[in-house]
Design a binder for these strands. Structure first.
Lengths: 191, 191, 191, 191
DNA sequence: GATGAATGAGTCTTCATTCAT
DNA sequence: GATGAATGAAGACTCATTCAT
């Protein structure tokens, strides 16, 4: 029955990859990652067949963590505004609290190493947000715009907001709130 | 200085770099770029001392082109809304018309290879936009928010919009307009 | 010694090694062999201490099979020509019927991984052939040449013949006979 | 015009490859070859794109040298027997004088790394031998057998003979002559 | 200045072998 | 004994940069 593959080691590698990639970019050597994870160079490849595999797994892992952060305690019963605010706040705070993961996420997305499968897997956890947006449109609170457009808007503003909160932690609340108000103003029907 | 450096060659290299980096990522080999530019491998290094230098120069070059696209014919005399719409439209259209340059710009920004100098140089051409925003705040059309925050908001929404226009060219106008309206609604004071 | 080593497993590994080495060369990974044999990677090493050990064992195994094919039903009582023809035919047919084993044999011999011990062991089963040759020389049917030279001649011609039979199975008989006649003509005293 | 590729370096690499492969097998590291050739590791790859390319080039190079050795001073006007003896002797002596090249040739042929192109190129220099054999058959000196079969016979016997000459240099002449007589007896029509 | 051969450190990945389970 | 995860030394090949021509 040999030694079973260790979840701990897998996680250590993913964590190390996050650190190393965040600091040196995706071009960082796999050997740096295995070293940071405290495993042998070869071990990395028993958990992830190739560097690209590692990248894809890391992407999913981070996305999953993000989804969890955003959707836990989701106030299903509250108003559209409250629900959107919940998601917004959680997203921004996650990005501020996990700058490395956030940075790596961006790099992976822009690098073009993701499989279609991973892209889909990364999207999956966010269906509930879409559902919320859909119902909001239906009740005419939010303008009639394509859902992906709305989602992308939120994301774009949230990412931007994170940057400001990171740079000016003292004004965190200001930026967090201002960002949200801009989003809300942009999305809702006028008057 | 027998033969002077050729502006043509420099441009050929920058253009080739845009193509190659856009297609293969910043990890692409300099030899691929020199080949695409039709010059020898060594020649690239007489125009740019290192690969990082090339990256920085490319960044500035693209930013300059972008600034030019945005600010030419700038309607200094018109309303804040008109001026903002001008900038918005130009930005979005530039991104749609120059997907490779846009893609490379993003990669460079996210990769962390930029010198402070380059970052500043990249910002410079956009001072006029800032000025516009400043005056708009002063006259209380736009909310009293930090200028960089406003600029970043515009950028974030514009980049997102580009993506949609690229994917749905037939609805270009819809996305372009919707994006702008969201920006405007977000920035202006609520009555 | 709770569980005794299984002869089956050993054989499975040797058979798998024949297949894998024949197809991918001696550089093939031991893990490919264990996989093909349906055993764990580590198991291979309980049956053969090192890859070189496996190679040597495989060599002997194949040689043994070959000797068996050649010497079974050996017509001890018949004429020199009949006995030589028997050996010739059996050798050629074995090579045609076992192309992988034959191929691996050649690779091992040419690769220089054999111990002296294995070389000797590989020769052993062929003593009877030598004996036959010796007596043939004594009775002056065959020219007075060093025995190993005679053996090598037969082998060289037989291996060559195998190749032709493999490539032109329809002319198998022609090549088999022609080859033998050449051998016989070459070995016997000219009148 | 930069430094031109040096024929010397190319030859040094090929010579080093012959040595190293002969001693350690085709699995030998390219770094061992570049070191033996006195060039940097990378340099090997500017002359041969891959290890397989090197193998193929080496094969052609050796075959060319062999053909040259065999066919120079070819006695076109003499009898079939003399011409065959010429080729035979040259071949055997080449193999004895160039044991490393000969060994490497065998390894490459058995390893299955040759392109069809290389195989053809390796055959080309030997057309004259075929022509000779053809005419010999026509004049009914040699038995009517497929040409490739005849060629292969000569080769098989010659290679075997080389081995004996190498092991017993003092009896070189004996083996050389005996081998040839066997070949001649085998090929010619009886009576 | 232009060229491209030369360099060798660095990359990802493989693999024989060991050893915890 | 069987298993397969762990190991780390190689290995083939790449690439930014230098420099002879």
């Amino acid at each position: 029955m040999a030694r079973p593959r260790s979840e701990d080691k897998r996680n250590a590698i993913l964590a190390a990859a996050t650190d190393v990639f965040a600091e040196r970019g995706l071009g960082a050597a796999t050997s740096a990652i295995s070293a940071a994870a405290g495993v042998a160079e070869g071990t990395l490849f028993t958990y992830f067949r190739t560097k690209d595999d590692l990248l894809n797994a890391l992407y999913r892992e981070i996305k999953l963590g993000l989804a969890d952060a955003m959707m836990s305690d989701f106030p299903r019963k509250k108003s559209v505004r409250d629900r959107l605010a919940h998601v917004w706040t959680r997203y921004v705070r996650w990005g501020v609290a996990n700058p490395k993961a956030h940075r790596v996420l961006q790099q992976i997305e822009v690098a073009g190493a993701l499989t279609e499968e991973s892209k889909l897997a990364g999207l999956a956890p966010f269906v509930e947000i879409q559902a919320m947006a859909e119902s909001a449109i239906a009740q005419r609170t939010v303008q009639d715009l394509p859902l992906p457009f709305i989602a992308a808007t939120m994301r774009a503003l949230a990412e931007m907001t994170m940057g400001f909160v990171r740079q000016h932690p003292d004004d965190a609340e200001l930026y967090e709130r201002s960002g949200f108000e801009m989003l809300w103003a942009g999305l809702t029907r006028k008057r």
